[in-house]
Design a binder for these strands. Sequence first.
DNA 1: TTGACAAAAACATCAGACCATAAATACGAT
DNA 2: ATCGTATTTATGGTCTGATGTTTTTGTCAA
Lengths: 250, 250
Amino acid sequence: MSQPPDPPASAAAEHPFTAVRVTRSFDEVVRQLHEGLLSGRYSPGDRLPNERELGELLRVGRSTVREALRMLELQGLVEVRPGRNGGIFVAEPSGRNVGDALETLLRFRPPSRAELLEFRVSFEGETAWWAARRATPEECERLLALAAAVAEAAAGGAWEQLAEHDVAFHEAVAEAARNQVRVAVMQAINHPLREGVMAMGAEADASVRGAVADDLQAIAEAIRDGDSDGARDRMREHVERNPAFGQPQT
Amino acid sequence: MSQPPDPPASAAAEHPFTAVRVTRSFDEVVRQLHEGLLSGRYSPGDRLPNERELGELLRVGRSTVREALRMLELQGLVEVRPGRNGGIFVAEPSGRNVGDALETLLRFRPPSRAELLEFRVSFEGETAWWAARRATPEECERLLALAAAVAEAAAGGAWEQLAEHDVAFHEAVAEAARNQVRVAVMQAINHPLREGVMAMGAEADASVRGAVADDLQAIAEAIRDGDSDGARDRMREHVERNPAFGQPQT
DNA sequence: TTGACAAAAACATCAGACCATAAATACGAT
DNA sequence: ATCGTATTTATGGTCTGATGTTTTTGTCAA
C-alpha cells in the first residue's frame, strides 16, 4: 500500500522534506492493478489478461509485469496458475495473508510470543463476549459441533484434525461476533498459530488434550446461553492455558 | 510462508492428500534467502551479494532472483537501492509490513464504520490500559507533547497537522504498551483512518476540535499517572466520540 | 575551492527465445 | 460409441543478453 510514498516512515518528523523516491515501473503496475481490482469490474475467480497482454496494455515488459504479479500474489489478491486455461485469477481477499505477514515477522523477531499471547487474551476474550450477544442458533450449533469434533480428535490422537478444528472454532467465534475486522485479525493470528497447535498436540498428555475440548465446549455453551461475561472469561482462561505457539522454525 | 503447500486452503479436511504443487524456482530462492537471513550471518544494514552474483550462487537466472527479491522486499526483509554503492540490504523487520497487509485486506474488504468503531473502542482502550502500566517517563512526555501539538493545530486550524499528530499519538500509545502486535494493528487501522480525520477536521466546529485535544491530554495524563483504568475509559470515550472514518475509497 | 564532466557499479527494463504444464482436441483401436 | 493415447495449444516459468537509469566516485581545469 503506502510503501512507495514514504519509505523512511518513522524517521524524523521535524523536517518538511521527504526522501526523493523515483517510482519503479513495477510499483506503478501494482498500483494500477490494485485500482483495477478495486474498481469492482472483477469478481473473485475472474481471469485477468495474461502476462503478455498485460504488458502490452500497460506498455511495459513482461518481466516487469511478473515482478508486479509476485507482489499481488503475496498480497493474496491474485492467484496464478500455469497451463492451458491457466492465467491470472482474482482471489478472494482473506486474513490469510495478514497472517503470513505476521508469521514472517514473528519468525524474524521471535521474542514477541509473549506479546502475541497477551494480545490474544484480550482480543479473543472480547470477541467471545460479542459472539455471545450476537450468535445465531445456527452458529451456536456449529460451535458446539466443532467443540465435539475437537474432543473426538483429541481422544483419537488425530493432531492434524484437532488443530484444524481448533482453528475453525476460533474463527467461527469471530464470525459469530459479526465484525469483519475481528474476523480478519483472528485469521491473521490463527494461521501462524496452527503449526504451534499441532506441535503441542504431539507432546501434550491426555489431560491437557481433554482440557482443550472441555474449554471449547464451555465457551460454546456460554455463547449459546448469551452469557457474554462467562464466554469472555472462559475464552481468556483457555487462551492463557494454551498459548500453543511452538517454535516457528522451518 | 505456508503459501506453496496448500493453495485450496480451507477445502476439504478429511483426505490426507494435499494438492500437488510444483515449486517454482523463485519460491525456492525466497526460501533460501529466508534461511540465510535467519542464520544470523547477516545483520540489518548488511549488503547481500548483488543480483547477478545471487543468480550464480543459486544457479538461477537474474529475473528469477528479481522476482524473489520483490517478495522479500514486500515482506520488509530486504531493501533494494539502485546506483553505485547500491544493492540488496538486510532490513530491520518491523510490524509495518503486517500493518500494510492488514491495510490491503481492509481496502479490499472494507468493514463498515460501525464494525471498525466497535473494534477500535475495545482495542484502543486495552492498549491505553497497558500503556499506563508500561510507559516510560520519556514516552509520557512524548504523549503530552503530541497532545499539546494537537491542541495547537486545532486552534490554528491546521487540519493536516492535526491529523498527523493525532495518528502519531495513537501509535505512540501502542508503542508505550510495548507490544509489537498492537503496534502493527494500530498502524493498520490508523492508515485508512487518517484521511477520515482530516475530512472531519474541515467540518467540525471549534468545540469538537478542542474536545479532541482535551481528550488526548486527559489520556496522556492518565497514562503518566499509571491510572490504567482511567486511561482505558478515557480512550474508549475518545474513540467513541470521534469515529473519524471517511470512505476508504481511492 | 569549486564546478563540470567522465567513469563505474549497481539496479531497472526490455525483447526474444525456449521450456514446462495442463487442458482441449484429434485420432485410432476396440 | 467408447476408451486410451497422441497431438495441439494457451498459458505461465525461466534464461540470456543488451540497454537504460540512478547514484557515487574520481578527475581535471578554472
